[in-house]
Lab assay of single mutants.
Amino acid sequence: MAAGGDHGSPDSYRSPLASRYASPEMCFVFSDRYKFRTWRQLWLWLAEAEQTLGLPITDEQIQEMKSNLENIDFKMAAEEEKRLRHDVMAHVHTFGHCCPKAAGIIHLGATSCYVGDNTDLIILRNALDLLLPKLARVISRLADFAKERASLPTLGFTHFQPAQLTTVGKRCCLWIQDLCMDLQNLKRVRDDLRFRGVKGTTGTQASFLQLFEGDDHKVEQLDKMVTEKAGFKRAFIITGQTYTRKVDIEVLSVLASLGASVHKICTDIRLLANLKEMEEPFEKQQIGSSAMPYKRNPMRSERCCSLARHLMTLVMDPLQTASVQWFERTLDDSANRRICLAEAFLTADTILNTLQNISEGLVVYPKVIERRIRQELPFMATENIIMAMVKAGGSRQDCHEKIRVLSQQAASVVKQEGGDNDLIERIQVDAYFSPIHSQLDHLLDPSSFTGRASQQVQRFLEEEVYPLLKPYESVMKVKAELCL
């Protein structure tokens, strides 16, 4: 049975990233139509530049190519590739079939990587351009969430054990800070992308030097003109047959890092959902379990974690691919890159769409948070109580021993009897502590235990987050809708 299948058929496997999760716009960027249309555009740009620099290419040939950029006979191309065992030459023939007058000058002087690699770089750039505003929107939604809850005390956790208090907004800023680093890295790697350009079979530009009869300047002009037509500021000066596969490492490393950030955020949300302090959106008709109707599973956060793990592992592909590119190139890269580049971007696209949807509907339960604080705060307040007693004339050592005994009794009630923490009640009825009984409410005010959390939130948002989001103001209103 021949390899390949009808990918629109229910009898043929289709990647869930495309069929179930990723956005239509990201799927289109990695589609065959987008790819092969870009090949034709690159052939047109090459012909236009070659004509401008004096090669015998007519206006009629150029116009014929322009008129057929979208006229792609995919069936013919597939048949040609089956016959020739070469995808680029299959599309040269297919393009030439609908451009008979231009057929002889299509791909003039070029090698397969002229269309293959340059198209990949265009796709990487455009895919990054799709991700950047999506990530900015996630940051914006979380920034709104953090600002609104900047002063809401909550129990902090280290080692997932109760620690000092923080605020809900401050905790959210930990998430935002990681995503801001990801946004900066995505922008950097996007701006650092260079075009492969017009380089020939081993990167020496020998074929173009021959076409222009040894004119170095025209060869350099050709490279520059096509690079500018493709919208790049610069091209690699040095290439082998391909652009260095280190570029793929750079791009997928940034995406993998984004995956790590999203995994951490969504894990926190899942843990908070278990504590009943916070939940992701839950639709009115949504079913959490087929057997347990009360369940409210954090399905979206779980999906993000599941896909983020996949995204983090994909960076190993370009690392290994770059390491086995012998001399000017081997074909070890080809099949692998067809999979890992598309999957990385479709996965990143999915987790950003999902995280935006989550961040637009996060639900906080202040009463649950308050109750958990009441359970733990008495123990945390013991040092403040000791200091207040010393100020009232008591002995630190005597007070410490009193607190120690009462704390152990209260802990026994919590752990052995399943009761509430009654340390404060014990202190309130103990005559030894009568000098500070009137101060206990103040000493137990949760806001006095959150330090500068709310001020940190305000400063972080104003100095770091809002300036970073400013270039994306025009796209901030787009909502994230999930079908599944």
Rank of each mutant, 00 (worst) to 15 (best):
6 D>A: 13
8 G>K: 14
14 R>Y: 15
21 Y>E: 09
30 F>V: 09
34 Y>N: 06
40 R>K: 14
48 E>W: 12
50 E>C: 06
54 G>W: 06
55 L>P: 11
60 E>C: 14
64 E>N: 11
66 K>I: 03
71 N>F: 13
80 E>C: 12
84 L>A: 04
87 D>H: 13
90 A>D: 03
93 H>Q: 12
95 F>K: 04
98 C>L: 08
105 I>D: 08
107 H>I: 00
107 H>C: 15
111 T>C: 01
114 Y>R: 02
119 T>H: 05
120 D>R: 04
124 L>E: 11
128 L>I: 02
132 L>I: 09
136 A>D: 00
146 A>T: 10
149 R>K: 05
154 T>I: 03
170 K>N: 12
172 C>D: 10
174 L>I: 05
177 Q>N: 03
182 D>L: 05
185 N>R: 08
192 D>E: 08
195 F>I: 09
204 T>C: 07
204 T>M: 02
205 Q>C: 00
209 L>K: 01
212 F>S: 03
220 E>D: 01
220 E>M: 14
228 E>A: 11
233 K>G: 02
234 R>G: 07
238 I>K: 12
239 T>C: 15
244 T>R: 10
252 L>W: 13
259 G>S: 14
273 A>Q: 00
277 E>C: 01
286 Q>V: 04
290 S>G: 09
297 N>P: 07
297 N>Y: 00
301 S>A: 03
309 R>A: 07
318 P>N: 03
323 S>P: 09
326 W>L: 14
326 W>D: 09
330 T>N: 01
336 N>L: 05
338 R>S: 03
339 I>L: 06
341 L>S: 05
341 L>Y: 02
349 D>P: 04
349 D>C: 10
351 I>Q: 07
353 N>S: 14
371 R>T: 14
373 I>L: 08
378 P>C: 12
387 M>D: 00
389 M>R: 00
392 A>K: 00
393 G>D: 15
393 G>C: 01
393 G>V: 12
398 D>W: 06
402 K>Q: 12
404 R>Y: 11
405 V>H: 00
406 L>H: 12
410 A>H: 14
411 A>H: 08
412 S>M: 06
413 V>H: 11
431 A>D: 01
438 S>I: 15
439 Q>A: 12
449 F>M: 12
449 F>L: 05
457 V>T: 14
464 E>I: 13
466 Y>Q: 12
467 P>N: 14
480 A>L: 08
